[in-house]
Amino acid sequence: MSKQAVTVIGLGPMGQAMAAAFLKAGYAVTVWNRTANKADELVAQGAVRAATPAEALAAHELVVLSLTDYDAFYAVLGPATEALAGRVLVNLTSDTPEKARAAAKWAAGHGARHLTGGVQVPPPLIGKEGSQTFYSGPRDVFEAHRATLEVLTGADYRGTDPGLAQVYYQALMALFWSSMTGYLHAAALMRENGISAEEFRPHALKAADVSYFIGVMGEYLDADRHDGGEARMVMNAASADHVVHTLRDAGLDATVPVALAELFHRAVSAGHGEEGFTSLIKVLERPAG
């Protein structure tokens, strides 16, 4: 039986972690990066350094891409389209769902098949248990290469639409960045009051567990219910104002909390003041012109 093989294009921290995981699993690995010396450590571990993207594509059927964005995807592969025929492109590059759909169409036009991926863990967790990546695109392509992809992370197939993996990925990134920025605001306020991040940690962890709220809100959203009760938007807006005033009083930047407070007040102005927090989705679905 021939040795399992894969090409990895793009050797930032994520690409390097993926190539290393494949090498550790016994794969024949060919790598390419615009800055060639980023491959040095991988070559020392047994990878083959390709001189050009075309050479990297020609080396193996399965090609994993880890690039900055889809503009980089075209910049790298555009000059090497003659080498795309028959290749399977597993594009783990982050960008918009629409760009993923366009890239899949572009790849098909050059005889390649495109599988979109959204990696849910940072580079140090590649190859570790519990890690996960969303995939979407042709199911037969996903199933044919699933075992190889699972060398990197668990593989969560979301459907044939090439954009779906990025829909899930970007949705979770919106949640992630909002949460992490909220934590830094909270930590900054603690520091201004002489409280260390370590002392604050157990309280932050408790507040970060929003599973109850996501469960309840999900039921309300799917039922298109926005009952108010104690969580009326008018009260939420007042609470958001209190956060802004507290941060400003402490001399901290309040740009993001101000934007949130303005969003809450827009919901009140739009007539949702007596409705619950989930009514805010009506404002998010109809952004200000």
Rank of each mutant, 00 (worst) to 15 (best):
K3E: 10
V6T: 06
T7Q: 04
V8T: 03
K24P: 03
G26C: 12
V29Q: 11
N33E: 07
V43C: 01
A50W: 00
A51H: 09
T52C: 05
A58Q: 13
V63I: 15
L65S: 02
Y70P: 06
V88W: 13
D95G: 03
T96L: 15
A104I: 00
W106Q: 08
G117P: 01
G118K: 05
Q120G: 09
P123L: 05
P124D: 03
L125D: 13
K128E: 14
G130L: 02
F134M: 12
D140A: 12
F142L: 09
T153F: 01
D156K: 14
T160E: 15
Q170I: 08
Q170M: 13
L175M: 12
L175G: 13
W177F: 14
W177H: 12
S178R: 08
Y183L: 11
A187D: 00
E192F: 00
G194C: 11
I195Y: 03
A207D: 13
A208N: 04
A208H: 10
M217V: 08
R225V: 11
A237K: 02
S239M: 14
T246V: 12
L247F: 08
D249E: 14
G251H: 01
E262T: 13
F264W: 12
A267R: 05
H272Y: 15
I281V: 14
L284V: 15
E285G: 04
R286I: 01
A288V: 13
A288E: 15
G289R: 15
